[in-house]
């Protein structure tokens, strides 16, 4: 006689899930509930520090099209004993520079800015103390000097590791080749400053640069010149749109001040034409042409708001004195500057 056929599944359905299956299901549900609770708790307790790793800061971690040797040099120079990375490096180009330094980007962009890398390092034994290193690639040493000189802090302590470098109570600022570097500390402690100096030295060592000093600073008269007052303005010097690459220095004697400046143009014709345009610009804002005294150097003089502007050209050089308080002061400084240029390029 044939036995009745019963499907094994039917038997299982009748019997229902086994105790083991029930316990397993219950366990899985418990885990899901715990995950949900943990997510709710994490959402409710915001911690800015914990968010940092998820922030868009890390989106910029990849260096954009930097040569591998550059990336390696940046990495190598950020390895300083006793300092640990706080966050991944950030990279900014001309389009995004203002995302890092806001309105100050307008100072860097006309000076040839190409790229900024910034990274924060904290002291390994005291993580509350940290420093941020900003490496601005200005495309050339003149651009780097321009932004360095425009922001130089008066009375800061010079540093010997580069021709142009100084330290303030909490920061180090230097030019190395095409780079303008700032290292900003979170406080003024001596231990942190020692580490920051080590960071600066590491950067200079990893980015060797041939000293190619510009000729212009040496042509500015040395007498009565205020210390550390030489600046390079990359664009719009004295508010005049066509005036770029202007070296200037401030002078003081007898309690009065004036500024001498010079800019090397492509040709003598361009220098002359720019001088004409600048004088027209001054006249547009109320400047009055004044005839120079008979024994004066070959300058053109414009009086404006009780101050005197003197402008002259020598070969491809456009030079002058800006905002002298008296005509005699302006003529004295212009004569010194003219003499320097004549001796350098007869």
């Amino acid at each position: 006689m044939m036995q009745p056929l019963t499907h094994p599944t039917s038997r299982n359905q009748r019997q229902g899930p086994t105790r083991r299956e029930t316990l397993l299901s219950f366990g899985i549900l418990c885990v899901l509930v715990l995950i949900a609770l943990a997510m709710f708790a994490a959402q409710a307790r915001y911690d800015a520090g914990a968010w940092r790793a998820l922030s868009h800061e890390t989106d910029r971690a990849d260096a954009p099209d930097l040569p591998s040797d550059r990336v390696e040099a940046l990495e190598q120079s950020s390895r300083v004993a006793g300092m640990t990375p706080m966050s991944p490096p950030e990279h900014f180009g001309a389009e995004t520079l203002s995302d890092k330094i806001d309105g100050k980007a307008e100072l860097y962009l006309p000076s040839g800015f190409e790229h900024l890398e910034s990274r924060r390092l904290a002291m390994a034994d005291d993580p509350g103390r940290w420093a941020e290193r900003f490496v601005y690639d200005m495309g050339g040493s003149s651009g780097a000097f321009a932004v360095y000189s425009q922001q130089r802090r008066e009375g800061a302590q010079p540093m010997e590791i580069t021709p142009h470098g100084y330290r303030s109570a909490n920061g180090i600022f230097l030019v190395q080749g095409p780079f303008y570097v700032e290292i900003i500390g979170s406080d003024t402690s001596a231990r942190l400053m020692d580490k920051m100096v080590a960071m600066a030295e590491a950067f200079v060592a990893a980015h060797p640069a041939t000293a190619t000093a510009a000729a212009e600073p040496d042509l500015l008269p040395a007498a009565d010149r205020l210390p550390d007052s030489i600046t390079l303005t990359a664009a719009n010097a004295f508010g005049f749109e066509g005036f770029d690459q202007v070296y200037a220095a401030r002078y003081q004697w007898n309690g009065r001040t004036a500024m001498a400046y010079l800019s090397r143009r492509a040709s003598a014709e361009e220098a002359e034409s720019l001088a004409d345009a600048y004088i027209a610009f001054l006249q547009e804002f109320g400047g009055q042409i004044v005839a120079p005294p008979p024994d004066a150097p070959p300058v053109r003089i414009v009086e404006m708001f009780d101050l005197v502007q003197l402008i002259f050209t020598h070969n491809e050089w456009l030079a002058g004195v800006h905002e002298a308080e008296t005509l005699a002061d302006g003529l004295l400084l212009a004569e010194r500057l003219h003499r320097n240029l004549s001796e350098a390029a007869p």
Binding site: K104, R153, E154, G171, E182
Partner: peptide
């Protein structure tokens, strides 16, 4: 007083 809006040095 200087180098705003970021500053960077206590000398500012």
């Amino acid at each position: 007083m200087h180098n705003g809006p970021t500053g960077g040095s206590l000398d500012d």
